[in-house]
Design a protein around this nucleic acid. Structure first.
Lengths: 343, 343
DNA sequence: AAGCGAGTCTAAAACGATTTCGATAAATCA
DNA sequence: TGATTTATCGAAATCGTTTTAGACTCGCTT
C-alpha cells in the first residue's frame, strides 16, 4: 500500500540501514547520499510507518485523552470541547496525534490503563472524569506521564482554571451592583464545586453578608432541567434572592426558563449569572453575565506540559498550572430592584 | 512497561506461538492450555500491543477522520461536533479508535493521504472539507476505504443530510404562515448550498412566487458577522422581506442582532429561520425556527458504513445514505405583519 | 610496506505480535 | 508390530523500522 523503506532503499540503490540513517541525520552518511535519499523519498512520498517506528523506538507520538462526562455530551460539551480542541491543536503542532481513551464498551472491554498501553500512547491527559473511579486512579498512579485538568492528584501535573479567583470576582461584581441576597446553585459535589462554593461564601462573609442555607442548592452541572427546578425552588421562597449564580452557563438556560415561567424579567426583577463563558451564548440575548474560563490556554498548557513530561522526563517537574478566569459582564446582572420581593 | 506476550508465555511455561494461538482461538491448542493462557493473561492484565499487532496483520483498528473548517472551530462547531461524537461512539462500539487527520502543520508536514498511511488507519471519514483541494481528491481516489459526509464523490460512499427535503419543508412552513417576500442568505458556494438554494427556489416557484435577486445573498457559513451584514443589507431594501432564512443557526445569531440594531422585533416585525437545529440554541429565547439535521444518525451511519467497507470489502457496495431532516417550529417565524414595510 | 584512522556503507538483531511449517508424542489403523 | 493419522506444541519467518557492530576503501603516517 504505502511505500516502505525497503522500496525506497531499492530505488536509491542503497541498503535499508543507510536509508534510515540518511533520513535520521546520522553522521556516518555522506552528504550526497543523504541528498539522494531525501530527494527520492520526497519523490516517492515516503513516510516511515508510525507503528513500525513506534514498535522499535517505544514512542508513538500519540497522546491519550481520557474524557468522559455524565451527560454523555462528548464533543458537544461547551466547556470541555474547546479545551479538547486547544489540546489537540497544540499536540498536533508538536507532532503528536491524539487518541481517545475509553472502555471500548463492547466485545473486548478494557480498563483505561489497558487501553493506554494497548495503544501505546506516550502520555495521557485526563479531563472531566470521575477521579474517584478506581480505573482512573489506576491510570493516575500508573507508569505513563499524566496531566490532569481541574483536578489535583498526588504528585501529578495539573492545569486548573482559577475558580477561586473567578468566583470571587463574579461575586464582588454582583455585590458592587448592590445585591445582598445572592443565591448559588452549585454543581455536583466535586473539587471544582468545592472551590467555587467556598470562594463564594468567603467573599460574602468578607462583605459581612450572611447566606441562608436555602440559598445554597446542590444541583447538577451542565443540566438545565436541574437548574430550572432549583431556580423555581428559589423563586418560591418567602424571601427570594435578588440574584442567582448558576452552576454554569448551560444550566443557566434552565434557570432563565424558570424565571420566565414565573413571569419575572431579567435583570429588572431578578439577576442571573452563569459560569464558563460559553462563546455561542454570548451572542444571544439576554447576554449572560458570566465568568469566562480560558479554554484555549487551558488546553494548550495541558498539551505543552504533557509533551514536556514525555520529551524531557528528567528535567521536567510536576507542577500546577493556573489559568486565570475573566469576568464577562453581560446584561443579566442589573442593579437591585427597588421594591422588596413579594411574599 | 506493559506486559508483553513473551512475559506472558514465560508465566505460562509455554512458547510464544502457543500463547498467541490460545488467545486467537486457533484449533491446535488444547482446551486446558487455552484456559491457562486466558487466566494468566487476565491476571497479568495482558493486552496485545496494537502497534505490534497492526504491523503484522496490516490492520490497526484505527479510523481516520479528516475534518477541517474555515472557521477553525473544530470540536466547537455546533453541526459537525455532534456528528463527530456520534461517529466516534459508533466506531468505539465496534472496536475502533479514531485519529484526526491533519497536515501536522509544523516541522514535518505531510499530505492528508500521507498522514493516513503514516498512521496506518484502516479507513477514513471525510467531513466538512474543501473537497476541491487536490490533497483531498488524492485521498478520495487513494487506496483507503472512504466515507464522505454531505458531499458525493465518484464511486465513494456518502452519508448526506437530506437538505433538499429539509429546505423544502422549511420553505413550505414559512409559506404556510402567509409569507411571500422571503429572503435567503446562503452559505459559501458548495454542494450543500446549491441543494438548499435550488430547493428553496423551486419551492417558491411552485408556489408561484418570484424571488428577487436582492433576496438571495451569498454569505458565509457559520459566520454571524457575515450574516449580520447581509441582514442589514436586506433590511435597508426599499421593499424588505418579511422573512429571512439564514445559512445556519449560528449565523442566524448575527442576523438577529442586525434586526435588533434596526429596532425591529422578531417575529412581530420580521420572521427569521435558521438551519441545523443546534441543541443549545433551542433552549434560548427567542427559540429559533429551524431545520434539525440528525447529527446522531449521520455520524453513526458513517461509522457503520466505513467499518463495513473495511471488514467486508467484497460484499459491501458503495452507496449514498440519506438521513432526513425535521422541522423545528420555534418562535421566530410568525404570521406576516399587517402593515406594509416602511418607505 | 605495514599500520592506522577517517569516512561510508551494510548485515543483522531487535521491537511485539501473527502465522506457517515442522516436530513430537499419543492414538489409531492395517 | 509398523505405519499412519491426530492432537498439541514450538521454531522461525515476517511486518517496517531503528541501531549496534562490523566491514570495506581510502589516504596518510611511520
Amino acid at each position: 500500500m504505502a511505500v516502505t523503506i525497503k522500496e525506497l532503499s531499492a530505488a536509491c540503490g542503497l541498503s535499508i540501514s543507510t536509508v534510515s540513517k540518511a533520513l535520521n541525520d546520522y553522521p556516518d552518511v555522506s552528504a550526497e547520499t543523504r541528498e539522494l535519499v531525501r530527494a527520492t523519498a520526497a519523490k516517492l512520498g515516503y513516510r516511515p510507518s508510525a507503528i513500525a517506528r513506534g514498535l522499535k523506538i517505544g514512542r508513538t507520538f500519540n497522546l491519550g485523552v481520557l474524557y468522559s462526562d455524565d451527560s454523555e455530551s462528548g464533543f458537544t460539551h461547551n466547556y470541555f470541547a474547546p479545551i479538547l480542541e486547544a489540546f489537540k491543536s497544540e499536540a498536533e503542532r508538536r507532532g503528536y496525534d491524539i487518541t481517545f481513551i475509553t472502555h471500548h464498551t463492547d466485545h473486548n472491554s478494557m480498563t483505561y490503563l489497558q487501553h493506554c498501553l494497548y495503544r501505546n500512547v506516550d502520555g495521557v491527559c485526563i479531563v472531566n472524569c470521575h477521579f474517584a473511579d478506581p480505573e482512573v486512579t489506576d491510570l493516575l498512579s500508573g507508569p505513563l506521564p499524566v496531566v490532569t485538568i481541574d483536578h489535583m492528584f498526588h504528585n501529578r501535573s495539573c492545569v486548573e482554571s482559577e475558580n477561586r479567583q473567578g468566583m470571587t470576582q463574579l461575586t464582588q461584581y454582583i455585590l458592587s451592583k448592590g445585591h445582598t441576597r445572592i443565591a448559588y446553585i452549585c454543581g455536583d459535589e466535586n473539587a471544582v464545586t468545592n472551590i467555587r462554593r467556598t470562594s463564594f461564601l468567603r467573599t460574602m462573609q468578607e462583605a459581612g453578608l450572611h447566606v441562608p442555607q436555602q440559598y445554597l442548592i446542590a444541583s447538577r452541572y451542565h443540566h438545565p432541567a436541574a437548574a430550572r427546578e432549583a431556580t423555581a425552588q428559589l423563586l418560591s421562597l418567602p424571601e427570594r434572592p435578588t440574584c442567582i449564580i448558576m452552576a454554569d452557563d448551560y444550566a443557566a438556560l434552565g434557570g432563565l426558563e424558570a424565571i420566565r415561567d414565573a413571569g419575572l424579567r431579567v435583570p429588572q426583577d431578578i439577576s442571573v449569572a452563569g459560569y464558563d463563558g460559553v462563546a455561542i451564548l454570548q451572542m444571544c440575548r439576554p447576554q449572560l453575565t458570566t465568568v469566562r474560563q480560558d479554554t484555549q490556554r487551558i488546553g494548550q498548557a495541558a498539551a505543552r506540559k504533557l509533551v514536556h513530561l514525555i520529551e524531557q522526563p528528567r528535567t521536567t517537574f510536576q507542577e500546577i498550572i493556573s489559568i486565570p478566569c475573566s469576568l464577562l459582564p453581560g446584561g443579566t446582572v442589573g442593579p437591585v430592584p427597588d421594591q422588596p420581593s413579594s411574599i
